[in-house]
């Protein structure tokens, strides 16, 4: 299991384009990839390989999301997703 946190800097939060960048990167790996967002009314989880699941997190600018990656290629997936967050999500 690999995990890392990322704090969203992009205006508009995790909307279609940034969420899509995560999904298209996540789909290249066979590991299960889950993203969790903590909020005052509890934790929400999303499947990183499903666009509308990610968008339904309603993650906004300033929110921290946590990636949990579990599977045979978890290490490469974590590295790739971390760089996608920095380069394409913002």
């Amino acid at each position: 299991m690999q995990s890392f946190d990322y704090t969203l800097g992009c205006v508009g939060g995790l909307h279609a384009r940034p969420a899509g960048a995560i999904v298209s990167a996540a789909k290249r790996f066979s590991s299960d990839i889950l993203i969790r967002k903590l909020s005052p009314d509890g934790a929400k989880e999303a499947d990183a390989k499903r666009l509308i699941s990610l968008m339904s997190l309603g993650a906004r600018k300033g929110d921290t999301i946590t990636f949990f990656i579990n599977g045979p290629d978890e290490r490469e997936a974590a590295e790739r997703l971390h760089s996608v967050c920095r380069e394409s999500v913002g």
Partner: peptide, 21 residues
């Protein structure tokens, strides 16, 4: 309806074809 974006510009629908946006 799955999600409605905060400002109302995007909607997802779980349909028999699959997830629609």
């Amino acid at each position: 309806i799955g999600t409605v974006s905060e400002n109302g510009h995007a909607y997802s629908i779980a349909s028999e074809i699959g997830d629609l946006l």
